[in-house]
Design a protein around this nucleic acid. Structure first.
Length: 277
DNA sequence: AGACGTACCTGACCGC
DNA sequence: TGCGGTCAGGTACGTC
């Protein structure tokens, strides 16, 4: 479920393993993911020392010596897994081996993920990153900025939150969860989510994301699960995936009501119609 | 320009 | 048990 918190947790796990070490060997086991891998992808990474691992929206940036930057996106099903010696499976598309012998596999059965190369000088203007909106956990994301973004939009607020140009890093799960926490209906027009509603929404988004990141960090040591999986974790959501279950906040107030699911531009939205207006 | 539908790809799950 | 249909967390592109 790679939205911002999961990608952040993957980055922290990768940083622990990679920073200060070299890629001793890189193997591209197929030539394309969502997009073709760049020419000489593996050769351009092999031997280089890793200086830093960062995240921008749902993208992972691995900064290497010599100004090379590996830009990766997990798509819908991409995972980073520490290999345990077993033979790579059909969906293990790229393999990274460090100078310590740690083997990290990028596994992505749907192949909606991507990996490409850019440089220290060019990455901020990279076409994949250039149009992204503010980081929701940064200072640039606040009620005034969000109000300005939403003010002209007639689209439902749920769709606006999924638009990476408005805010970068939310996906279908955390958009629903944030609106639930803010008490705003996913159907409300974006342009009406300004002022005090934008204040609530910004606070809710930050809180929901920070809690999810904290859950990822506390679930297992160094962000590595016993299975070798990096960055994913057991986390339960208040409304996402809970159609028909009692709304937790209403239930704790002694009111019986159920989580609803609707389709918005083809994607499920989960919400409480009593609390969210 | 903005909003919407669709495509990309594979696996899991459900109902018959 | 087997099979077809549906759905899935993201993004980019084409079309109004």
């Amino acid at each position: 479920m790679p939205e911002l918190p999961e990608v952040e947790t993957v980055c922290r796990g990768l940083a622990k393993i990679l920073v200060g070490h070299r890629f001793q060997r890189v193997v591209a086991r197929r030539a394309d993911l969502r997009t073709p891998l760049p020419r000489h992808f593996a050769e351009r990474l092999a031997g280089r020392k890793i200086e830093r691992v960062d995240r921008r929206a749902k993208y992972i940036l691995v900064h290497l010596e010599g100004g090379v930057v590996l830009l990766a996106h997990l798509g819908m099903s991409g995972r980073m897994v520490i290999a345990d010696g077993a033979a790579p499976g059909p969906h293990d598309h790229v393999i990274f081996v460090t100078d310590e012998g740690t083997e990290i596999r990028f596994s992505d059965h749907r192949r909606f993920g991507l990996m490409t190369l850019t440089t220290e000088a060019d990455w901020p203007e990279h076409p994949l990153l250039k149009g992204l909106g503010p980081e929701p956990l940064g200072n640039g994301f606040n009620a005034a900025e969000l109000s300005a973004e939403l003010s002209g939009k007639s689209t439902p607020i749920k769709a606006a939150l999924l638009d990476q140009r408005v805010v970068a890093g939310l996906g279908n799960i955390y958009a629903s969860e944030s609106l639930y926490r803010a008490g705003i209906s996913p159907r409300r027009k974006a342009r009406s989510c300004v002022g005090e509603r934008a204040e609530r929404l910004v606070a809710a988004i930050k809180a929901v994301l920070l809690e999810a990141i904290a859950a990822g960090g506390s679930s297992f040591s160094d962000h590595v699960q016993p299975t070798g999986e990096l960055g994913y974790f057991q986390h339960s959501w208040a409304v996402y995936g809970r159609e028909g279950e009692p709304c937790p906040r209403c239930a704790s107030a002694g009111v019986a009501c159920r989580v609803k699911r609707i389709l918005q531009s083809g994607r499920s939205s989960f919400f409480c119609s009593r609390l969210q207006r």
